[in-house]
Write a protein that binds this DNA or RNA. Sequence first.
DNA 1: TATTGTTATACTCTATAACTATA
DNA 2: TATAGTTATAGAGTATAACAATA
Lengths: 161, 161
Amino acid sequence: MADWCTDNTVKYIQHMTHAATVLDRVLHLSALVSADMARFEKEQGLTGPRVHLLWVLGRSGPCTQQSLAQALDVTPRNITGLVDGLVASGHVTRQAHPDDRRATLVTPTATGRRTIEGLVAGHADLASRLFGDVPDDRLEVFAAVLDETAARFATLMEEDR
Amino acid sequence: MADWCTDNTVKYIQHMTHAATVLDRVLHLSALVSADMARFEKEQGLTGPRVHLLWVLGRSGPCTQQSLAQALDVTPRNITGLVDGLVASGHVTRQAHPDDRRATLVTPTATGRRTIEGLVAGHADLASRLFGDVPDDRLEVFAAVLDETAARFATLMEEDR
DNA sequence: TATTGTTATACTCTATAACTATA
DNA sequence: TATAGTTATAGAGTATAACAATA
C-alpha cells in the first residue's frame, strides 16, 4: 500500500466503489423486470408504450388525450398514434367528451379492461414472488434506502436546474 | 374486521401489499435514473441505444458488430444502423479486422473515448451522490436484498420456460 | 385568443429476408 | 456450408409545425 494512502482513504474508496456496484445492481434488477415486461407485451401483441398507456388509463379511468400526453410525457401527436393502435387492436375506444366537443375520452373496452387487470395482477404477483420471502426487518431497510435515494435524487435534479 | 380474517391473515396481506409497493419503488428509482440518462443523451446529441453501444464498447474495447449485436441483444442489421449513426457523429470508426476480412472492428475515436469517459465518470458520480451517505450496514442489507431478488428472478424465469 | 386533436413530414430503433464477400 | 455485414422493406415510437374545430 502506498504511504500516501491512509486506511481511511482506503475505506472511503471502497465505500465509493461499493456505491457504484449498488447502482449497477439496481439497474440490473430493473433491466430484468423490463425484460419480463417485454415478454408480457409480446404475448399480448402489444408494445411498451401502449401497455404504459393502458396502465395509466387503468389508474385514471377514461381520460382525454391531453391528459395522457402529460402522464406519459410525450406529445399529443404521439398519443394520437398510440390510441390509433389500441383502437385497431380493440383495447380502447374514443368516446365523445360530455362537456367539451373538442376532446375525446379514451376508454378501455372489455378486452382492454381484461388486459389492464392482467397487468395489475401480474405486477402484484411478481412483487410478491420477488419480495414476499424477504424478512420484514430487511424489507424495511430496503424500502427506506430506496425512498431516501429517490428523495436525494430529486434534490440533486433541482440543484442542477 | 371480518371474523374469518385472523390476525395472521392480516399480517400476511400487509406483507404482500408492502412487497408491491417495494417493487414500485425500485421501478420509480430506475425511472429517475433513466430520465437523468436521457438528459445526458440529449446534451451529447446521442440516443439511448447509441449510448448503450458506446458503454459496451468502453467495457469490451474494439469489437466486431456481431459481438455488439449479442451484447445489446439486437439483430446485426440493427448494429449496422447504430454504428452508421456513431460514425456520422464522429464517435467511432470501422477498422479492418486483422484476421478476418469479413469482419470490422468498431473502434472509438478520440471524441468517442471522451464520451465514454464522461459516461463512466457520470455513472460513478451519480452512484456516490445517491448512495455515498448511506451507512455501511444499511447499504449491505440493501445490496444483499438486491442480489437475492435478482437471483430469485432468474429462478422464476427458468421455471416459466 | 387559447386549447384539442389531427394531418404532414422526418428521424430513430427495431425486425425479417435476401444478398455479397469471406472463411 | 457457415459466418459477417449490408441492402431492401416494413412497422412502431418520437418530434415539430401547420391546421381545423371548438372553447
